[in-house]
Amino acid sequence: MEKFKTLTSRAVPLPIENVDTDQIIPARFLKATHKIGFGENLFRDWRYQKDGTPNKKFVLNDATYEGSILVAGENFGCGSSREHAAWALADYGFKVVVSSYFADIFRGNALNNGILPIKIDEEKLQRLLKHISENPNATLHIDLENQRLALGDIGLDERFDIDAYKKMCLINGYDDIDFLISKKDVIKTFEAQNH
């Protein structure tokens, strides 16, 4: 996994609540046997019209907005546990998702794939959404070490929470597999004693 320390980027606003994983990546795209390539179908049914042409009104098809930060409405990532949702976001190029609430399983899946989910309170989320919608060039600054999300233009400088272990993983570009492999001996001993 790539190391994550700080990120300065423009952001893409998605002011929709309860974005479920079926919207992020519809079930019919789950037949693939690799993790890459899902970005093409990210938000497929919002991004494309029934005839396959791009829906110009959808934010990802609007060249005004760009960046590796997605700012979305409350309860992002609810529904099916499919990790493909996190792969699709990562493959598309998102490194951070900001929302006022994340579904549990999605949050875990995101962290396991190097995407940082940042939870901020609803009022600040609305301010953020409004500002980036109106000022597509606004840049956000994220500092994982100090757990801060800042947008100078509107005087936003927020501390966000992250589990100490997960933070360590992201900063070192470690994932759970690397960590578990480093624990091989302890696991072997446990196996020998218990099984």
């Binding site: 546990s81 499919r82 990790e83 399983i105 875990g108 899946n109 396991n112 794939n113 994932d175 759970d176 597999i177 578990l180 492999i181 624990k183 091989k184 696991i187 196996e191």
Partner: peptide
Amino acid sequence: GTSQVAQVFASQCL
């Protein structure tokens, strides 16, 4: 999730 499937593959743990 699939990342966890990989964790179990790699270590038999989660």
